[in-house]
Write a protein that binds this DNA or RNA. Structure first.
Lengths: 189, 189
DNA sequence: ACGTACATGTAATTGGTTACATGATTTC
DNA sequence: GAAATCATGTAACCAATTACATGTACGT
């Protein structure tokens, strides 16, 4: 049961359909959890069966009927319990880092191409998170918002996501520089 | 096949037994990939069967006989291929971030306790990575080492691990401060 | 006519975790 | 005498990915 609480936390911000959830897990939420649509639909079914969320059907004119889900009191209690429980150490699984670990044994140019791609992806996420943060805090400064804003949970996790991607970008750029310099100095000898 | 390449990359640094691998995946390597002993032993068996690694038995006097594994040419080719292939976007799954996402709906003190624990854990990892880096570069400065050192792959991934944990620690501390201040300002009204 | 967005799933397979199992040696 | 380290697995279960499936509507 791992995805379970991530879905509950995401639904706290307001009612969402399964489809909307998949979008949320693709961008904002995805900075701390990732899941595919199939998994999300399955999890929603289970959560509803267990009474932790409840759904209501919304008939639309031009679009297919959707079901909007919200967290029940039982769901909130479950989250409270989860928060108090031991947190597994977070883990990362990153293909790119595996590739860099093998840097001394594989082709540099291939590696540089992968690093550039990741740096560009990180930059895009930085822009996106910046926009999301500005939208959440409105006219307030970050300090003001964090002191007096009503819902700061999503803001705080978004801040972590932003810093993470900045770290990714900076490290990718540094690594590219290092690999390039080594290539050139080897070429001279 | 995901763990597969992480194991290959780890074995590039020299022969390791299954047991030694589990240790490596607990500390250094764990900053980009995590796996349990059972999984590693299973993966080693599969890798050997596929000819990507080869093992040799080392009989010891006081300890049980162990098997040391090294990457074969086929294994190197596999890694080269992997490096050129599309890298899945890295993902994080972090209980703590789920908890903070729900910050506006759960008890602050519980959350602060979890954040403190994580900050301490991050600090320990920062110290560990610092030591590992100093050990790898020896007498050289970082710049010198990255320019002329023989094997820089593990150093580069360790740098990413270090920055990641620094980011974790800083974010945890910031978040604790924010939660504390909100609690106090609410108490005054 | 074609691609994208909306909306929701099932089925098969692979990957990962938890629990269990064994047994010697070294360190406190 | 107890705990940690060395050394390696099996079995059962749960989670996640990949592939497949269906149908409407809107924009270009």
């Amino acid at each position: 049961m791992a995805l379970r609480h991530a879905v509950l936390a995401a639904l706290l911000e307001g009612e969402l359909s399964g489809y909307q959830l998949t979008k949320a897990f693709d961008i904002g939420v995805a900075n701390f959890w990732h899941a595919q649509p199939q998994q999300l639909y399955a999890e929603l079914t289970r959560l509803e069966k267990d009474g932790l969320i409840a759904g209501r059907a919304v008939v639309q004119e031009t679009r297919p009927t959707k079901r909007l889900f919200h967290v029940t009191d039982a769901g909130l209690a479950e989250l409270e319990e989860f928060t108090a429980a031991f947190a597994k150490p977070s883990f990362i699984r990153d293909d790119l880092l595996v590739k860099v670990q093998a840097a001394d044994h594989v082709d540099s140019e291939t590696l540089i191409a992968q690093l550039s791609e990741r740096a560009a992806f990180a930059e895009a996420k930085i822009q996106l998170f910046g926009k999301l943060l500005r939208k959440m805090r409105g006219d307030l400064t970050e300090e003001e918002f964090l002191r007096h804003g009503r819902r700061i949970g999503p803001y705080l996790t978004c801040l972590r996501g932003l810093a993470l991607e900045q770290g990714n970008r900076d490290w990718c750029e540094r690594t590219i520089t290092v690999l390039r310099e080594r290539k050139h100095s080897r070429a001279r000898h």
